[in-house]
Design a protein around this nucleic acid. Structure first.
Length: 409
RNA sequence: GGGCAGGUACCAAAGUGGUCAAAUGGGGCGGGCUGUAAACCCGCUGGGGUAACCCUUCGGAGGUUCGAAUCCUUCUCUGCCCA
């Protein structure tokens, strides 16, 4: 098999479209190139959806190419209408900066910015300085409104309405590419397939103003076999930040994936060899659990490191099988005196976040959905007290698989 | 700027003075069956309370009324048509 990273991405199903397959393959097979992906600063943390571009960047990085990550302070101020049903909430400049800082440090964990072979830039640095009229004359004139309106991304929005600010997003993203091309020699932009239009706009722009052919590549948008969008669970969005989304829960997210998603997930979210992946995919029935454990372990290592992954794995095994330590389990420590008095379980479950409210906890108790140390709570009268305290603490469970450990001090 | 139609819970969408914490569908959650999977069946789905009941919610703010998601005023946002 070829060691051209293009072929690796292709084999893993990570390529949706390119501007020119042969040209892209050739450029990736030769000397190191500079490429970029943009990340919006719309939240304090990236979520699992950003993992696809991150993995792709890592693949190219491993092959010796030089990544640039744009943390999009400038473009975020405008807001990308692609794939959005309506105008999204406008964030203040200050908020966007703060989000950008956090996202920058997260990306750093994956990519290790060194300021030279791997850098992060904020497009606010150049976009905010643009002069409006000058920009219109130099850049705006290269964009055909007719053509933009024909694009799927905008056509959808013709129904719901599209504000002028959003309509400009594409110009700014195209300009980013031009800027990076001129200042960093960046010749390839990648992104999710929903970005195809925006990315191509940049390719076109560079061809028109600098008469150079640069390239574009997009990744397929991962949807689950159930049709749902990836990355939502009962505990909310699957964030990449360990503070916002516990590594144990992260591990469980992968364990709980649908059988049908296993193969694509292994290819996309781990660096396992294709041979190994083929072996895992061929497993049948309950053996698939083993494959899911490997998926979960590998994916957790990439995002949270080896020791967190080990803890998560051990806790998962402790909760669902035999043996293993519970140390990676989300844990809350409470005052021993409260146990001595006895705690209303509804209160405790709500407090540790296993249920959204006491009312919900009570409902679940009535439905037989809450457990203490794997024993169903069968009465609203029951209190949690010292007798429930095991050497491992008290293991609370909501439903089949949401666990939380309580320690007393 | 003018005219019209709208803003209801996570989403979509009923409701047009009390019987509305608000139909229905989706989603989500719990139970059963399983493999920590899918499909399927049953149940739940604002907060507090064992309960009676209390509190908060129908774009925002005022008002009418014994009583408002429902009527009035005003503000605001969105869509459509005209300019």
């Amino acid at each position: 098999m070829s060691d051209n990273v293009f072929d690796i991405l292709k084999e893993r199903g990570l390529i949706a479209q390119t501007s020119d397959d042969d040209a892209v393959r050739k450029m990736l097979g030769n000397d190191p190139i500079v490429f970029y992906i943009g990340f919006d600063s719309t939240a304090t943390s990236l979520h699992i959806g950003s993992l696809v571009p991150i993995m792709a960047m890592k693949h190219l990085q491993r092959a010796g190419h030089k990544p640039i990550a744009i943390v999009g302070g400038g473009t975020t101020m405008v807001g990308d209408p692609s794939g959005k049903a309506e105008l999204r909430q406008m964030l203040t400049e200050e908020t966007i900066r703060e989000y950008g800082r956090q996202i920058h440090s997260q990306l750093d964990r994956y990519l290790h910015f060194d300021g030279k072979n791997c850098i992060a830039v904020d497009n606010a640095d150049w976009l905010l300085k643009l002069n409006y009229v000058e920009f219109l004359r130099d850049i705006g004139r290269h964009f055909s409104v007719n053509r933009m309106l024909a694009a799927e991304a905008y056509r959808q929005r013709m129904e719901k309405g599209l504000s002028f600010i959003e309509f400009n997003y594409q110009l700014l993203q195209a300009y980013d590419f031009l800027y990076l091309f001129r200042n960093y020699g960046c010749t390839l932009q990648m992104g999710g397939d929903d970005q195809w239009g925006n990315i191509l706009a940049g390719v076109d722009l560079i061809r028109r103003v600098d008469n150079v052919k640069v390239e574009a590549m997009t990744f397929p948008l991962l949807t689950l076999s159930t049709g749902a969008k990836m990355g939502k669970t009962a505990s909310g969005t699957v964030w990449l930040d360990a503070e916002k989304f516990n590594p144990y829960d992260f591990y469980q997210y992968w364990i709980n994936c649908d059988d049908r998603d296993l193969g694509p997930f292994l290819k996309t979210f781990t660096f396992l060899s294709m041979d190994e992946i083929k072996r895992l995919e061929s497993l049948q029935g309950s053996e698939l659990r083993e494959a899911k454990q490997i998926l979960a372990f590998e994916a957790t290592i990439i995002s949270h490191g080896k020791s967190a992954a080990r803890e998560a794995k051990a806790s998962s095994e402790a909760a669902f099988g035999t043996g293993g330590e519970l140390d990676g389990m989300p844990t809350t420590t409470i005052n021993r005196s409260r146990l001595e008095q006895g705690i209303n379980p509804a209160e405790l479950f709500a407090e540790v976040g296993l249920t959204g409210s006491r009312g919900e906890a009570k409902r679940l108790i009535k439905q037989g959905g809450l457990y203490i140390n794997d024993q169903r709570i069968d009465s609203l009268e029951r209190l949690v007290n010292e007798n429930d305290l095991t050497p491992e603490g008290i293991l609370l469970r909501s439903g089949k698989k949401k666990y939380h450990r309580v320690l007393a001090k």
